[in-house]
Design a binder for these strands. Sequence first.
DNA 1: TTCCTCAACGACATTTATTCTCATTTACAT
DNA 2: ATGTAAATGAGAATAAATGTCGTTGAGGAA
Lengths: 133, 133
Amino acid sequence: MEAIDLKKAGLKATLPRIRILEILEDSEEPHMSAEDVYKTLLEAGEEVGLATVYRVLTQFESAGLVIRHNFDSGHSVFEIDRGEHHDHMVCMETGQVVEFHNEDIERLQKEIASKHGFNLVDHSLVLYVKPKQ
Amino acid sequence: MEAIDLKKAGLKATLPRIRILEILEDSEEPHMSAEDVYKTLLEAGEEVGLATVYRVLTQFESAGLVIRHNFDSGHSVFEIDRGEHHDHMVCMETGQVVEFHNEDIERLQKEIASKHGFNLVDHSLVLYVKPKQ
DNA sequence: TTCCTCAACGACATTTATTCTCATTTACAT
DNA sequence: ATGTAAATGAGAATAAATGTCGTTGAGGAA
């Protein structure tokens, strides 16, 4: 139930927030831009302002409900955080996005940060690929 | 000599291009935004338009002279391509940027792409870190 | 060297993504 | 039910980047 998630996250359960969370949860495409969410709201006949969509998505990010990705498309996309960390592989020909997880890479990253006197807080790894042959 | 590099890269050796290349080569900070380059030009008393800076940087990217990075600052930064590939570690407290290279990670990336039926063309890896303690 | 031509340029308008402002509305604790 | 602070909607404002267009200049031809 969405309301519970919002309360738990320390956010008032307002209508825009509930709807936006539903949209992100139900979306086929796991990565949605603010515009995508806004259009989906309009199509559903909801009266929500674009500024609110941006505000809510940023709040969701702060609350750890969604993850913001800055691929190199010039705008941010958001993805529900289901707790399973993964990285992304983007096909440069089809646009297809594949999610993957590799424990060795994760470990190496921590080691490298540590070797330089830092603790790893977060990371962003995107592979740009093309189909074989 | 800059003119030679530009000619080799198939670009006319115009004054704005020569100056911008010099600025990128001489910069303390290896990552400069278009605005940074523009300001540096102004300070040096050069009459170059901002649009030209953007155009030239994009051309340099196409010609393989510079690499464009989209960290999550909301704008692109550019770095001279000296041929030595490396990834980046950004300190979330000081903004310090450390470059690193790890052959194991490079190899694992290729393996992962291959496992999914792709060839790795490029990748972007940024570690977000904080000082230990 | 001088001339010609097309690519490159400068100025500025425009677009795109996002944030800000502020008057109004709403969630929800009392 | 009601008060209050937080959230919202509308639209203005900002920032990054690109487009337009008349002018300039690099560099090959004469």
